[in-house]
């Protein structure tokens, strides 16, 4: 199992349902190959730095996943025939990047558990604490 990072640029003219479908199709393929999506983000519509296939804008999707190397070939084959995708890049993560990733995942987990805790606690002080701790984490992103 290797760690990979994947950016996909979709057609910006695509509607939200189309984006959902594309995202689902990619995650399904990864999971079918015994992979696991660790993180996925939507960067939304962005202006491209240069024109690609007559596109000025693109919808960026970002995935971090763990999968066997064979899945990458299938993923690339999918992108080549998958119409909404016009540019993609898959990168294998190195040791240091994997360590940083695991740290960030742990931090996200801790944040999630901290957010669920104040809901059970009744005093307002705990809530304020949670808000303060959540703010810097958001700034990092």
């Amino acid at each position: 199992m290797n760690y990979y990072e994947n950016i996909v640029i979709l057609d910006a003219a695509l509607e939200d349902t189309g984006i959902d479908a594309a995202e689902k199709r990619i995650t399904d393929l990864i999971e079918k190959q015994q992979g696991e999506v660790l993180k996925h983000e939507r960067w939304g519509r962005r202006k491209l730095s240069y024109e690609i296939n007559k596109h000025e804008k693109g919808y960026y999707l970002f995935f971090v996943f763990k999968s066997p190397p064979a899945a990458i070939k299938l993923l690339e084959e999918l992108y080549k025939v998958f119409d909404p995708v016009f540019k993609f890049m898959i990168i294998k993560l190195r040791k240091k990047e994997i360590i940083a990733l695991q740290n960030s995942l742990q931090a996200a987990e801790a944040k999630a558990s901290a957010e669920s805790a104040p809901e059970t606690a009744k005093n307002d002080g705990a809530k304020n604490d949670a808000e303060v701790s959540a703010a810097p984490a958001g700034a990092v992103e």
């Binding site: 640029i9 730095s49 690609i52």
Partner: peptide, 12 residues
């Protein structure tokens, strides 16, 4: 080079 490839930076 990676950023250029995925159009985050421009080649020129």
């Amino acid at each position: 080079k990676r950023a250029r490839n995925i159009a985050l930076l421009s080649f020129m």
